[in-house]
Nucleic acid binder design. Structure first.
Length: 290
DNA sequence: AACTACGCCAACCGCCTAGTC
DNA sequence: GGACTAGGCGGTTGGCGTAGT
C-alpha cells in the first residue's frame, strides 16, 4: 500500500481539513496529484480489498486510508459500477430491454430507480443503453425521444415486438432473476417482474383482454402500493387468433405494419433492424392518422 | 495499410438533498 | 437557521475499439 497517501500529503502540505473539503467538491489542490481517468488493476485491487474488509461508505476517508489518490466520489463510482459483486455488464437482454422501456415510459430518466428493478445493472449502464440504443432509434425515426410519436412507437411496436421475441425464446432465460414468464393459456402470456424485486407484484392475474399481454407489474407511483399492469397489444402465437392484435386503445390499426417486413428480421435478439425505411414510413402514416 | 467516422462505455462534472454540528 | 460534509443522481465527455472507405 502506498504510504504516501492523499491524507498524508494533505497534512504534510498543511491543508488540514481543507483537504477533505476539497476532495468532497472534487477540487484539485495544488501539489496534490489526485488521479483521474481509467482505473488501474492495482487501484481496483486496493479498493476491492479495502471495501471487503471495511465495508462500503465513508468514501472520502476510504480513499485516504486505502492510499488511493482518488476522490471519494471516484471510489464510490468505481465500486458501484465495476467492482461490486454481481455487477453485470454488457449484453442487455430482451427482458431487460423490456423492463427499461416500460419503466422509462413511467418514470423518465430516473436511472437509479430503474436500476433497482434490474439486479446487477447499474444506473450508468442503463443510462448508456438508453442514450446509445433507444435514442438512436428515435433519431432514425427523425423524432425526439420524448415525443408522443416515439412514445407511441415504443408502446405499440417496440415493446410488443420484444414481448413476441421473448415469448419465442426456447425457454425463460434462467440467469435473469428479474423476470419470469408464465403462460396461463394458449393465447395469453404474462411477463412479470420477479416479486423479489418488484413490490406488490400480483402473481397470476389474468389478462382483462383476450388479445393483450400483461407485461409487468409496476407501481403507478414509486410510493404506490397498488397493483397496476401495463398492457400491450399482442399478436401471433400469443395474440388474437387473427393475428391482428396491434392496436391503439385496444383497437387494431397497425396490423398492416405487420404485413410489411416488420416481423421478418430473423432471430437476432437486438432491435437494431426495427426502423427500416418502409417501417418508418408506415409508422408515420399510422401515427399521423391519429 | 492508412485514415476517418462512428458507437460504446467508463469516468467525470455539477447540482441537489439529507444529515450533522 | 446557517454552514459544512457526504453521498447520490443525471448529464456530459473523452478515449478506445471497430467498421467503413
Amino acid at each position: 500500500m502506498d504510504i504516501n497517501n492523499v491524507h498524508d500529503q494533505m497534512r504534510s502540505a498543511g491543508y488540514g481539513s481543507l483537504a477533505a473539503a476539497a476532495a468532497t467538491h472534487d477540487q484539485p489542490i495544488e501539489g496534490l496529484d489526485l488521479r483521474k481517468g481509467p482505473w488501474t488493476a492495482e487501484e481496483d485491487s486496493i479498493l476491492n480489498n479495502y471495501v471487503n474488509i471495511h465495508g462500503e461508505g465513508h468514501w472520502n476517508s476510504l480513499a485516504c486510508h486505502a492510499g488511493l489518490k482518488r476522490t471519494g466520489k471516484s471510489c464510490r463510482l468505481r465500486w458501484l459500477n465495476y467492482l461490486r459483486p454481481n455487477v453485470q455488464r454488457g449484453n442487455i437482454t430482451l427482458q431487460e430491454q423490456l423492463i427499461i422501456l416500460q419503466l422509462h415510459s413511467r418514470w423518465g430518466n430516473r436511472w437509479s430507480k430503474i436500476a433497482e428493478y434490474l439486479p446487477g445493472r447499474t444506473d450508468n449502464e442503463i443510462k448508456n443503453y438508453w442514450r446509445t440504443r433507444v435514442q438512436k432509434q428515435a433519431k432514425q425515426l427523425k423524432c425526439d425521444v420524448n415525443s408522443k410519436q416515439f412514445q407511441d412507437a415504443m408502446r405499440y411496436i417496440w415493446i410488443p415486438r420484444l414481448i413476441e421475441r421473448i415469448g419465442s425464446l426456447p425457454e425463460a432465460v434462467p440467469d435473469q432473476p428479474s423476470t419470469c414468464i408464465t403462460t396461463t393459456s394458449e393465447s395469453e402470456c404474462q411477463y412479470l417482474v420477479d416479486p423479489n424485486f418488484v413490490p406488490e407484484t400480483s402473481g397470476s392475474t389474468s389478462s382483462d383482454s383476450y388479445d393483450q399481454v400483461q407485461v409487468c407489474s409496476i407501481p403507478t407511483d414509486p410510493t404506490s402500493s397498488g397493483d397496476e399492469f401495463m398492457t400491450y397489444p399482442c399478436s401471433g402465437q400469443y395474440g388474437s387468433e387473427n393475428g391482428s392484435g396491434y392496436s391503439k386503445n385496444g383497437n387494431s390499426d397497425i396490423h398492416g405494419f405487420e404485413q410489411s417486413n416488420y416481423w421478418s428480421t430473423g432471430g437476432d435478439t437486438s432491435v437494431e433492424n426495427l426502423w427500416t425505411e418502409e417501417n418508418i414510413w408506415f409508422l408515420q402514416q399510422q401515427l399521423s392518422d391519429d
